[in-house]
Nucleic acid binder design. Structure first.
Lengths: 184, 184
DNA sequence: TCAATTAAGTATCGAATCGATATTGATAAC
DNA sequence: GTTATCAATATCGATTCGATACTTAATTGA
């Protein structure tokens, strides 16, 4: 077992996961990437709900993400809203239909398989998190962590505040994924 | 960090690896999957050099693999040979040009990144191997291990023998990937 | 013996993805 | 102001991949 084969292992795992996901998705008339997008939108904050952030998160090209979003919009699962300050930007949000189908798709056999794989010990999860972080660093990609674990996350007498945007953050905000997430 | 997100982590790692590989590949006029195929062919034994085994190894569909092989054949990188016993089967082999381009593509930045990720301790690699094995088991896919680590691998006074096919195995055979690989 | 079944591989079509280019809006320089 | 530059996104052609149907060959089982 040589070190260099780890990439090969990851790619093969991904292929297996995808083919398994595809089975579930075809019943709903979707592709795996569509669920990934909607799952992300359900878990990201207002700084990270743009096509650009999605592109970065998924590691795909802008063109591909744009096409995916068009399809999801046409199906009535997501909505695009122009930014009021910067009209180049688009904010994405999950519509009710999208949320419904996402919840229908989520609890699958995949999850029971996952627990089978990772029932031994907790530290195994960290290996995957660390590996992804290292890859993102090598790729100059953001880490996409939870808001409340960011170094700019600040607790004041007034509540939570983002040290980057200086804006106030609700409890719910702090639990979401942020593309600007920074560690240490 | 919930357990169920591990699949998401793996898919995102794979996406990053692919986009990185793609950069190297486009220079050579190839796709990531083409290198995967040729790499596999350079490392598999005579029981595992068929389109069906490749399909299983890569987790793709037969049709997709067939297309990929057609292209590689047209480019003169691989060769197809009909099986003498079972004329449904095709054996694949890497041609000189294929081997050349494979070696040109192999030593990339990816490998130095890999060592960065896994320089801490050896046991991390096992986490990935175990995860893939668990997924393959859930997917009823073969494990594709090295011949000499298979439970049917036998050492006789005459040399190495495969307990399944009863055929003799050379030193080189024993170092290759076999689709019939069985553990314990 | 011969029809049914299974397996390996191929062909075709549509959807998904990539890469390049174009478009639009914001920002900076002059 | 006007122009240059950059950033965010959209558009388009080419390619890849998956689903399905099909061909050919081996196997099974009355």
């Amino acid at each position: 077992m040589e070190k260099v084969d780890v990439f090969d292992l990851i790619e093969r795992m991904s292929a297996l996961i995808r083919s398994e996901e595809r089975k579930k998705c075809t019943e709903l008339g979707l592709q795996p990437v569509h669920l990934q997008v909607m799952d992300y939108l359900s878990r990201c904050n207002r700084y990270s709900d743009t096509p650009a952030a999605l592109t970065n998160y998924l590691g795909m090209t802008r063109g591909t993400v744009s096409q995916t979003l068009l399809l999801l919009e046409k199906k009535g699962y997501i909505k695009k809203t122009a930014d009021v300050n910067d009209r180049r930007m688009v904010h994405l949000s999950l519509l009710v239909d999208g949320d419904t189908i996402l919840n229908k798709a989520r609890p699958t056999d995949l999850y029971s398989q996952a627990s089978t794989i990772f029932n031994e010990n907790e530290s195994q999860e960290n290996v995957f998190v660390n590996a992804l972080t290292a890859l993102q660093k090598a790729n100059k990609s953001q880490s996409f962590g939870l808001c409340k674990t960011c170094k700019y996350f600040t607790i004041t007498s007034d509540g939570f505040v983002c040290g980057l945007t200086k804006e106030r953050l609700s409890q719910i905000d702090s639990e979401k994924i942020c593309q600007e997430h920074t560690v240490s």
